[in-house]
């Protein structure tokens, strides 16, 4: 299945793109997706400890099991205000 991924804020610059599509097997977790993304975009791997992850509009952790049609977002700590 394919998963759409968006990189927000300066993560887009580090990734070299603001969006990508990743093909993963069924029952892949967010952690599994991140392993693929970090291979393709190693600059993001250095910030993994501070990376926030959302699926749709909800925060999720690495154990979340992805479903077809999920839209994953990766971004740095938020700074509103």
């Amino acid at each position: 299945m394919t998963i759409q991924v968006t990189f927000w804020s300066y993560f887009a610059e580090l990734a070299g793109c603001s969006e990508t599509v990743v093909t993963v097997s069924e029952a892949t977790s967010v952690d599994g997706l991140l392993s693929i993304l970090y291979q393709a975009h190693p600059a993001l791997a250095e910030l993994r400890r501070s990376t926030l992850i959302a699926v749709g509009v909800e925060y999720q952790d690495g154990e979340y099991v992805l479903k077809a049609g999920d839209h994953v977002s990766l971004f740095p700590p938020v700074q509103g205000g």
């Binding site: 927000w8 804020s9 300066y10 926030l52 959302a54 925060y59 977002s73 971004f75 740095p76 938020v78 700074q79 509103g80 205000g81």
Partner: peptide, 13 residues
């Protein structure tokens, strides 16, 4: 405001 700064995805440059 405190909670916003933890969870609302807004960034500033």
């Amino acid at each position: 405001i405190d909670e916003m700064k933890q969870v609302v995805p807004i960034w500033k440059t």
